[in-house]
Amino acid sequence: MRTSKPITVTLGKQQASLDARLQSGAYESASEVVRAGLRALDREEAALDEIMRAKIREAINDPRPDIPAADVFARLRSRHAGR
């Protein structure tokens, strides 16, 4: 039993990229190309998520004292007032 359903996709400029991959023999079908693209997107998003998690952990573990929000906004207003 099929676990996926057929879809229609309009690629626009990316059609040439798909066609080149098929002509090269690297992929046998448009479905393979799209699945590979989605897997790459999943990997990219997972990597970005991990980078953000690491930055958040770093910020939470930063031993320096917190800066009051009022001070931060005052600095921002001051910086942008000169523009």
Rank of each mutant, 00 (worst) to 15 (best):
M1D: 13
M1P: 03
R2A: 15
R2M: 11
S4M: 10
S4F: 09
S4N: 13
S4L: 10
S4R: 13
S4K: 11
P6I: 03
P6L: 05
I7V: 14
T8M: 02
V9G: 00
V9K: 11
T10Q: 11
L11Q: 04
L11K: 08
L11M: 11
G12W: 07
G12K: 07
K13D: 08
K13E: 12
Q14D: 13
Q14R: 13
Q14I: 03
Q15N: 08
Q15E: 09
Q15G: 05
A16L: 06
A16N: 05
A16E: 10
S17G: 12
S17M: 06
L18C: 06
D19Q: 14
A20P: 02
R21A: 09
R21I: 01
R21W: 01
R21N: 10
R21V: 00
L22C: 03
Q23D: 14
S24R: 03
G25I: 06
A26D: 15
Y27V: 01
Y27I: 02
Y27K: 03
Y27P: 03
E28M: 05
S29R: 05
S29W: 03
A30R: 14
S31N: 14
S31F: 06
E32A: 14
E32S: 11
E32Q: 15
E32W: 07
V33A: 05
V33E: 00
V33H: 00
V33P: 00
V34I: 13
V34S: 01
R35Y: 02
G37S: 06
G37M: 03
G37I: 02
L38M: 13
R39F: 11
A40I: 05
A40C: 02
A40M: 07
A40W: 04
L41P: 02
D42C: 10
D42L: 13
D42Y: 11
R43A: 15
E44Y: 11
E45W: 11
E45R: 15
E45I: 15
A46P: 00
A47G: 04
L48Q: 12
L48H: 10
L48Y: 04
D49L: 14
D49V: 04
D49G: 06
E50V: 00
E50D: 13
E50S: 07
I51L: 12
I51R: 14
I51P: 00
I51G: 02
I51N: 01
M52V: 11
M52D: 02
R53H: 08
R53G: 01
R53D: 05
R53P: 00
A54V: 05
K55M: 06
I56F: 03
I56L: 09
I56H: 03
I56S: 03
R57F: 07
R57M: 06
A59Y: 06
I60S: 09
N61M: 12
P63Y: 05
P63I: 03
P63H: 08
P63F: 04
R64M: 10
R64K: 14
P65A: 04
D66M: 13
D66P: 06
I67P: 00
I67Y: 06
P68E: 10
P68I: 07
A69S: 10
A69L: 15
A70N: 11
F73E: 15
F73M: 14
F73C: 08
A74E: 12
A74Y: 04
R75P: 00
R75M: 09
L76M: 11
L76V: 15
S78D: 14
S78G: 14
R79Q: 08
H80N: 05
H80K: 02
A81T: 05
G82C: 04
R83H: 04
R83S: 06
R83C: 02
